[in-house]
Amino acid sequence: MQIQDIRRQRLSQLIRERYDNSQAKMVEDTGENQGEISGLLRTKSFGEKKARKLETKAGLPVGWMDSPDMPYHMASTSDAGVRPALVSIPTKTAAKANVSLVWADEDELKLLTAYRLATELGKSSIMTTAEVAEKNPSLLGGYQS
């Protein structure tokens, strides 16, 4: 099954489960164009940018439309107010072509991405900062986990 097929299935599931099987309700909630939604469900190209845009507009975790296994209930905000996201963290070089799937909030995503793309010196600096913050949070502006 191709990624566009998975996205079509997920879009159909979203409309069915969240919007009572009504494209019109989804259009009203997300501001998307009715023809666009209808086309995506049929044969219109359903690329990554469009999938991420729809996830954002519908309040879904990043990657939800690409993951046939992610339960629908994961798309809701937790009691702590943190919306989990299934995210791809890129490697530094395309030659490695490694991507890891992890659950992360926006700050974690920024940190993980910065670390994965950093030079060895940058990675060392990030780790040193994290270790210092863990031992003495007041040195870094009072951040406490």
Results as ranks from 00 to 15, higher is better:
residue 1 M to R: 05
residue 2 Q to S: 08
residue 3 I to K: 04
residue 4 Q to P: 06
residue 4 Q to W: 04
residue 6 I to N: 02
residue 6 I to M: 03
residue 6 I to V: 13
residue 6 I to S: 00
residue 7 R to D: 02
residue 7 R to Y: 00
residue 8 R to K: 13
residue 8 R to E: 02
residue 9 Q to M: 14
residue 10 R to F: 02
residue 11 L to F: 05
residue 12 S to P: 05
residue 13 Q to E: 01
residue 14 L to Y: 04
residue 14 L to V: 03
residue 15 I to W: 01
residue 17 E to W: 08
residue 18 R to H: 08
residue 18 R to K: 14
residue 20 D to M: 11
residue 20 D to G: 15
residue 23 Q to Y: 07
residue 23 Q to N: 15
residue 25 K to P: 05
residue 26 M to N: 05
residue 26 M to T: 06
residue 26 M to V: 06
residue 28 E to C: 15
residue 28 E to P: 15
residue 29 D to H: 12
residue 29 D to K: 15
residue 30 T to K: 12
residue 31 G to Y: 12
residue 31 G to W: 09
residue 31 G to T: 15
residue 32 E to H: 10
residue 32 E to S: 12
residue 35 G to W: 04
residue 35 G to S: 13
residue 37 I to G: 04
residue 37 I to N: 02
residue 38 S to Y: 04
residue 41 L to S: 01
residue 41 L to H: 06
residue 42 R to E: 02
residue 44 K to S: 13
residue 46 F to S: 02
residue 46 F to R: 00
residue 46 F to A: 03
residue 46 F to M: 08
residue 46 F to P: 03
residue 48 E to P: 03
residue 51 A to W: 04
residue 54 L to G: 00
residue 55 E to G: 01
residue 57 K to F: 12
residue 58 A to S: 10
residue 59 G to I: 01
residue 59 G to Q: 03
residue 59 G to F: 04
residue 60 L to A: 03
residue 62 V to E: 00
residue 62 V to T: 05
residue 63 G to Y: 09
residue 64 W to F: 03
residue 65 M to N: 01
residue 65 M to G: 01
residue 66 D to E: 03
residue 67 S to N: 06
residue 67 S to W: 03
residue 68 P to E: 03
residue 69 D to Y: 03
residue 70 M to Q: 03
residue 71 P to A: 01
residue 73 H to K: 09
residue 73 H to W: 10
residue 74 M to I: 06
residue 74 M to W: 09
residue 75 A to T: 01
residue 76 S to G: 10
residue 76 S to T: 10
residue 76 S to K: 10
residue 77 T to G: 02
residue 79 D to T: 07
residue 80 A to H: 07
residue 81 G to I: 15
residue 81 G to W: 09
residue 83 R to W: 12
residue 84 P to C: 00
residue 86 L to V: 04
residue 86 L to T: 03
residue 87 V to Q: 00
residue 89 I to H: 07
residue 89 I to W: 06
residue 89 I to T: 11
residue 90 P to Y: 02
residue 91 T to D: 10
residue 92 K to H: 14
residue 93 T to H: 12
residue 95 A to S: 07
residue 96 K to G: 11
residue 96 K to Q: 09
residue 97 A to F: 06
residue 99 V to A: 05
residue 99 V to K: 00
residue 99 V to C: 04
residue 100 S to W: 07
residue 101 L to H: 07
residue 102 V to E: 00
residue 104 A to H: 10
residue 105 D to C: 08
residue 106 E to F: 15
residue 106 E to Y: 11
residue 108 E to P: 05
residue 108 E to I: 05
residue 108 E to G: 05
residue 110 K to C: 07
residue 112 L to G: 14
residue 112 L to S: 11
residue 112 L to A: 13
residue 115 Y to D: 06
residue 115 Y to W: 13
residue 115 Y to L: 08
residue 116 R to S: 12
residue 117 L to H: 07
residue 117 L to W: 07
residue 118 A to Y: 14
residue 118 A to C: 14
residue 119 T to I: 14
residue 120 E to A: 15
residue 120 E to R: 12
residue 121 L to Q: 11
residue 122 G to L: 11
residue 122 G to R: 12
residue 123 K to W: 12
residue 123 K to H: 08
residue 124 S to P: 00
residue 124 S to C: 08
residue 127 M to I: 13
residue 129 T to F: 15
residue 130 A to N: 09
residue 131 E to Y: 11
residue 132 V to H: 09
residue 133 A to E: 07
residue 133 A to R: 06
residue 138 S to K: 12
residue 138 S to D: 00
residue 139 L to N: 08
residue 140 L to H: 10
residue 142 G to R: 14
residue 142 G to H: 09
residue 144 Q to E: 05
residue 144 Q to H: 08
residue 145 S to T: 07
